[in-house]
């Protein structure tokens, strides 16, 4: 479904992503784990078209994404929940969800989808008229996920959804990620919380200073000596 092929990304003179290739098959949860600054967000931003690779290509459902503007990549069916949520704090919860459906014009179905999001995240329903900036961290994460789902993505990119959340909430978020996947949405999940990520993923990649150093099934990586040492606390 998604194919990233020997991609190199630079920030000015900084070579952030080095010859990265990875694959996401339809229906799977694929996770990309790595330490701070490894380049995980850079890869997601490149897939979404916010950054352009210097060399290499990104393909989605057989079509090249490289050079396609970010807003058109959403229309092709890729939606991202960015690192730090990036909700529109000065807009209401409902307006944030409506913006998630910006590329759609089927007003009736948009309303139905908003109800579905409220069903999945009842806390958002209670706070629909509230400014998004007044939500708690967990609620903001739910809103960011709900907003991304409003475009009806085929592929959902999640950048550290567990960041800054209490353990109980992390569990809840990961259960929801599983549900979303069970509903037919393919997921590329970036995490530092390798334990949780490997527990729900099918395939996994390890990124170190811009390079993929390990790849395999999530089970293989969870069992691997080096991953256990570096990311799973022994």
């Amino acid at each position: 479904m998604l194919k990233v092929d020997t991609v190199n990304v630079y920030y000015g003179g900084i070579h952030a992503i080095k010859d990265v290739s990875l694959m996401v098959r339809e229906g799977e949860i694929v996770t990309l784990i790595g330490a701070n600054g490894a380049g995980k967000s850079t890869i997601l931003r490149t897939i979404s078209g916010l950054l352009n690779p210097k060399t290499g290509s990104v393909e989605f459902e057989g079509a090249r994404l490289t050079g396609v503007p970010a807003q058109d990549i959403v229309k092709k069916g890729i939606s991202q929940v960015p690192e730090g949520r990036r909700i529109f704090a000065n807009l209401t919860v409902l307006e944030n969800l409506e913006l998630g459906a910006y590329i759609r014009s089927d007003a009736k179905e948009i309303r139905e989808d908003i109800q579905k999001i409220y069903g999945r995240f009842p806390r958002l329903a209670e706070r629909r008229a509230q400014l998004a900036g007044t939500l708690s961290g967990g609620e903001q994460q739910m809103l960011a996920m709900g907003r991304a789902l409003m475009s009806r993505p085929k592929l959902l990119l999640l950048d550290e959804p567990s960041m800054g959340l209490a353990p109980l909430l992390v569990k809840e978020i990961f259960a929801i990620i599983r549900e979303i996947n069970a509903g037919g949405t393919t997921i590329l999940l970036v995490e530092q919380n390798a334990n949780m990520a490997l527990s729900i993923a099918h395939q996994a990649y390890v990124l170190e200073t811009g390079r993929i150093t390990l790849a395999g099934t999530a089970r293989e990586l969870a069992d691997s000596e080096s991953v256990r040492k570096a990311y799973l606390g022994g």
Partner: peptide, 23 residues
């Protein structure tokens, strides 16, 4: 809708692009 897009772009341009908004 365009008004909401204006407010979104004004608050966070990259996040707005991730919504499919043509900035």
């Amino acid at each position: 809708k365009i008004g909401r897009a204006m407010r979104a772009v004004s608050y966070d341009t990259d996040a707005a692009r991730l919504m499919g908004i043509n900035v």
